[in-house]
Write a protein that binds this DNA or RNA. Structure first.
Lengths: 242, 242
DNA sequence: TACGATTATATGTCTAGACATATAAGTCAA
DNA sequence: TTGACTTATATGTCTAGACATATAATCGTA
């Protein structure tokens, strides 16, 4: 036998405590409502100081796995809803991660003073300059998604001169406008003429729609609508929950 | 003036430190790559012990807002992808939260030995007993979603005798099978005859589909397909990211 | 100049205490 | 039985240290 190639790697004590408890919860050994041992009991069991078990329990509480109540103790939580982390990768990264050839094509780009419709989409009152972009992403030369985007130049002035004929606006923004907040809305539509044409699918075929609105500290950055062929594309999210 | 009804509420020191730093990152004052002050500098600034600033920084690192490197310091992270937390509530809770009347109707329920198709859907090898359920959720008497579910009775034996004519299987499972893991797949289809009929929409209308596969420590629990009218229903996810 | 060894330092983990605070549980009176 | 008061206790936060460890920076050598 190869001796101890993966043995070593001793986790720190507080991580071991956290993992021990997490395992009992996830296997169902400690069901929701079960009171887990008091801190002083865990201190005795593991022979460490209270700060160490406190760190383990605090992290479990932060992850919503347990609930801590003063004077009462710590209890396994009953999950309230299915929760999923949806990782919406940069489309280029998403496609190359699948081992397919990424293609990008700028269909339309226009710099203009915001129209009423633009201001509505961006949720702004004043009429500043915006860039409107329509582009297409493809995988192995098959249309993967069409993107319809509006960027608020008063928040991202550099976007006026960026070269979106080579770099997709999503990637550009990801690297130039850090740490934003976003709201996503996912819905389904059937392809109209224009969409069917852009995606190379039949009129009336289902499409998955992601509308994303992005801002940073109350300033609108961009809004985008992504259209995917609905029967071929899938958003996958995995998480633990109830 | 009412004096100090909402004033007080002084947050603890480590929370204040964490909030201070988070604010600077989120406003862009400290952009990605920026080195935030060393622990000993924060100790001096806030006049507290290192454990206190360490707790604040550890939580920021856990939230992926900063990256900590030994000997080098702590740095504002550059987010790699848009990430969203998708809260998929229990449908009853979701509808009542919207202030609408929830309606539930069991369309079909069958207890049977798993067919080949069933085993395929559940991802199990052996042919045990399963419950197949089809039901409909409505809001203000308008169809909201149809649900097609399969429950593995070898994992959830109690489901054989549960009364799904009154309680939706999703709610029942949420309260009887705690802390599971799940994988979600979101896609779009157009309504076929049966779906159009069940949802009260036109054949060919878009539908949003959520397929969910649920298990606990390697044991299959249930698999479900939820169909929503795609042009009216929206999944909303909000999060901060890049 | 390039590479290898040494050193300095910021973070990672941990301790043995401390006081604060919310609250479950017990006590007592109306 | 109910309500108000008291008490005990588990968690929440914090301190002033400690040693471990990874690694950036420096220094010395080939």
């Amino acid at each position: 036998m190869s001796l101890a190639t993966d043995a070593a790697d001793k986790p720190t004590l507080y991580k071991r405590i956290r993992a021990d408890i997490e395992k009992r919860i996830l296997t169902g050994e400690w069901p929701p409502g079960h009171r887990i041992p008091f801190e002083h009991e865990l201190v005795a069991r593991y022979g460490c100081s209270r700060m160490t078990v406190n760190k383990a329990l605090s992290e479990l509480a932060q992850a919503d796995l347990i609930e801590r109540r003063r004077r009462a103790g710590s209890f396994v939580r009953r999950p309230q809803h299915m929760s999923a982390v949806l990782k919406i990768a940069d489309i280029r990264a998403e496609i190359t991660a699948l081992g397919r050839a990424y293609g990008y094509e700028l269909i339309h780009r226009k710099l203009r003073t915001a129209t009423t419709a633009d201001r509505d989409r961006l949720g702004v009152k004043k009429a500043g300059k915006v860039v409107a972009i329509t582009c297409r992403h493809s995988a192995d030369n098959v249309p993967f998604a069409v993107e319809d985007r509006l960027i608020d130049l008063s928040s991202v002035p550099d976007a006026a001169t960026a070269d979106f004929s080579r770099e997709p606006p999503g990637s550009w923004l990801l690297h130039h406008v850090p740490w934003t907040e976003a709201e996503h809305t996912i819905s389904a539509i059937v392809a109209d003429d224009r969409t069917a044409d852009a995606l190379g699918i039949a009129v009336g075929a289902p499409c998955l729609v992601i509308d994303r609105f992005t801002w940073r500290s109350a300033r609108t950055i961009t809004t985008v609508r992504l259209l995917y062929p609905g029967d071929s594309h899938r958003l996958v999210a995995r998480f633990k929950g109830g």
